[in-house]
């Protein structure tokens, strides 16, 4: 089937979201692992940042892949959300969810919040415009100075709560969309998604909290 027709169907778009979701989950796993280097020491994380620059092809390859993934993920989500809204032009006067988790019901606005956060995060730690004391390729300095400001750390903590919710439903939903379903693996799908949704955001927030508590300075 040509991609145009595939993309034209709602399931096709969902598959695109699932596949780009895998890319993004894979990336944040790498990202959180790298972040934890900060606890090893300034040289570990700064050295890691410098080493990335020695592989420009890989770096830009990953960046392009991520950009494409985010764009596809967001475009598909937006189109599907528009469709879904059109599918129920009159709202119920009373609607009481019976089964869905709050995570699953906040995917759209949570996704928008995460997108805004992503822009801020890039301006903050990659390009530096949103950082008052930014030094290129000095992540240890950039991170510790930023998170000493309580509300900056707060933005990150709130964003990670949103990420946790997005991952909790998104990771599980990915299996469902790709049709990875079997009575033997169904329970494992839920466990896997829960682990990702808890471990990744915890890893991320450990840094601003450590800074706030003075464990990193």
């Amino acid at each position: 089937m040509p991609f145009g027709r595939f993309w034209g169907s709602t399931i096709g778009k969902k598959v695109v979201m699932a596949v780009t979701g895998i890319v993004l989950v894979g990336y944040i796993l790498a990202h959180v692992t790298a972040n934890l280097l900060i606890f090893v020491g300034p040289s570990a994380i700064d050295g890691y940042a410098a080493s990335l620059r020695t592989l420009p092809v890989l770096l830009w390859g990953v960046r392009v892949l991520l950009l494409v993934s985010v764009v596809l993920h967001v475009v598909a989500a937006t189109q599907l959300a528009v469709l879904a809204r059109a599918a129920r032009p009159t709202a119920y006067q009373r609607f009481v969810p019976q089964a869905s988790s709050s995570a699953s019901r906040t995917m759209r606005w949570g996704g928008v919040a995460l997108l805004l956060f992503l822009v801020y995060h890039i301006l903050h730690f990659t390009t530096g415009q949103a950082h008052s004391d930014f030094i290129h390729l000095a992540p240890y300095h950039n991170i510790t100075t930023a998170f000493r400001v309580w509300w900056v750390a707060g933005i990150y903590v709130v964003a990670m709560v949103a990420l946790a919710m997005h991952l909790y439903h998104g990771t599980w939903s990915m299996f469902q969309t790709l049709g990875i379903e079997h009575e033997r693996v169904n329970a494992a799908r839920r466990r896997f998604a829960t682990i990702i949704a808890v471990a990744v955001p915890l890893g991320f927030v450990s840094v601003p909290i450590a800074v706030l508590l003075g464990a990193l300075r």
């Binding site: 034209g8 709602t10 969810p97 019976q98 869905s100 699953s104 469902q176």
Partner: peptide, 13 residues
């Protein structure tokens, strides 16, 4: 899709 049903977001309602 043609009938204007929405898409599935796997929420289980």
């Amino acid at each position: 899709d043609m009938e204007a049903f929405g898409n599935c977001t796997n929420i289980g309602e």
